[in-house]
Write a protein that binds this DNA or RNA. Structure first.
Length: 427
RNA sequence: GGGGGGAUUCCAGAGCGGUCAAAUGGGACGGACUGUAAAUCCGUUACUUCGGUUUCGAAGGUUCGAAUCCUUCUCCCCCCA
């Protein structure tokens, strides 16, 4: 199955430029996807693009991952209703390093002719002067053409307007495509559907400047079946960096997907083939309460992103918190084993001397730890029946916790809602 | 340059001198039900030592009392030139 067919059955083909499929069928081509250094880690949203590059490579083509050292300095207005703040150079540099390290884990850099490559557009923009740019690049694209883009049109119609900087973004990204086409024979750019306009500016530049031809493929925006944004949890973005989103939280993110979403995600984010996936879905529909589809999905992605060891810990933690795990089980563990089970769960430390007289629940939850942002909020949720300590529902706001309540003379397990656990350690 | 309208709690959007911590809807969070699903129903949604305390673009003022009236300022929108 070729690359485009693969994307098609997985539901990952939003738009494709005519002739792209034929071009790919001729033999190995190089194609690229750009990654914005807006944070020092990629998140599950960008995971789709990473995996697309991997599929591209598996189909025998050469994947190029571009990190936006230059474009990151400008800021992509696509999909943004407001002018963005510029990132400082230190932050940008830090972010670039983080993202590059993540990309390196997924792609194969030792695969002969179609080895992956990572490039940074700062390398060809750093010595490109403004005057040279507007003469060599700007001259080929009309403002009329640029204004017709959705990302620009929307902002021109809105109250906030748009700076010249962001207006010029599509030209900068367009030149990236031109540069890679010219110097690395890269004829295809891929990306999310919001990138179509930017990508086409690139192919247009290639055509007008050198009479060349280049191609584009975009993927649809991933949404949850209820229409809300994909990749968000209560805590915010789901990151690929284990320090920002622990492997346990990452695993939980996929595991808690709804049936519809899981069936969708497994096609998008895993490498199982069509037959396997149809099998999983069919099995799942027979025994949906076992959540096997979610388990396969969560296991596969967590392992690919964080590795087997991290997956095992996440499974262990999940098993304890959502399975049959009792406090007795915890008591039977050594301190190190407890920490292992709770790896990836937010933890708070309280000093032992301060704890001698114990704390009432509110102080404990809102003051000594930041499980709740204020006592008022903690009180409300306790009254609403949403808080458990040591797996027992907390009915009394004034209940005092002392050394006697500590598990292994050291731990308290707090629970906010059904799924949010915290470990309090008295040291 | 002239004229008009607006800025309200996470968002949208009521309120137009006391009964307003502020309607309603959305979102978010929590509970029940369940399968860590979906749907549904219910609750919460400024802080608090639960006495109160600080909120309605900013700063002053009128009043016993202001989100509501007055003054100045900042920002936004619309119409005319």
């Amino acid at each position: 199955m070729n690359f485009v067919e693969e994307l098609r059955w997985r539901g990952l083909l939003h738009d494709i430029m005519p002739g792209t499929e034929e071009e790919l069928a001729k033999g190995m081509v190089a194609g690229y996807i750009g990654f914005d250094p807006t944070a020092d880690s990629l998140h599950v949203g960008s995971l789709l693009q990473i995996i697309t590059l991997v599929r591209f490579q598996q189909a025998g083509h050469k994947p190029v991952a571009l990190v936006g050292g230059a474009t990151g300095m400008v800021g992509d207005p696509s999909g943004k209703s407001q002018e963005r703040n510029l990132l400082s150079e230190e932050i940008l540099h830090h972010n670039l390093k983080g993202i590059q390290a993540q990309l390196e884990r997924f792609l194969d850099f030792d695969r002969g002719a179609n080895s992956a490559e990572i490039v940074n557009n700062y390398d060809w923009f750093k010595s490109f002067t403004f005057l040279d740019f507007i003469r060599d690049v700007g001259k080929h694209i009309t403002v009329n053409y640029m204004m017709a883009k959705d990302s620009v049109k929307k902002r021109l119609e809105s109250e906030v307007g748009m700076s010249f900087t962001e207006f010029s973004y599509q030209l900068v990204q367009g030149y990236d495509f031109y540069y890679l086409w010219k110097h690395k024979n890269c004829v295809l750019q891929m990306g999310g559907s919001d990138q179509w306009g930017n990508i086409v500016t690139g192919t247009e530049l290639i055509r007008r400047k050198d009479g060349g031809q280049a191609f584009a493929i975009t993927s649809p925006l991933i949404k949850k079946s209820d229409g809300t944004k994909f990749g968000k949890t209560e805590g915010g973005n789901v990151w690929l960096d284990a320090n920002k989103t622990s492997p346990y939280q990452f695993y939980q993110f996929w595991l808690s997907a709804s049936d519809d979403d899981a069936a969708n995600y497994i096609r998008i984010f895993t490498f199982f083939d069509q037959q396997e996936i149809e099998g999983f879905i069919a099995e799942h529909s027979k025994v949906p309460h076992q959540r096997n589809l979610q388990k396969i999905l969560a296991k596969d992605i967590t392992e690919r992103v964080h590795g087997v060891k991290a997956l095992e810990t996440a499974l262990k933690t999940t098993d304890f918190l959502f399975g049959s795990g009792s406090l007795d089980f915890l008591r039977s563990l050594t301190d190190n084993e407890v920490f292992n089970v709770f790896e990836g769960i937010p933890q708070f430390e309280i000093s032992r001397p301060d704890f001698v007289n114990g704390y009432d629940a509110l102080t404990l939850l809102a003051d000594k730890t930041s499980i709740f942002p204020s006592k008022g909020e903690a009180r409300k949720m306790i009254v609403g029946g949403g808080v458990s300590l040591n797996r027992e529902k907390l009915g009394d706001v004034d209940k005092v916790f002392t050394v006697l309540d500590l598990i292994n003379n050291q731990f308290l397990v707090a629970q906010k809602g059904k799924k949010n656990y915290f470990l309090i350690v008295v040291k």
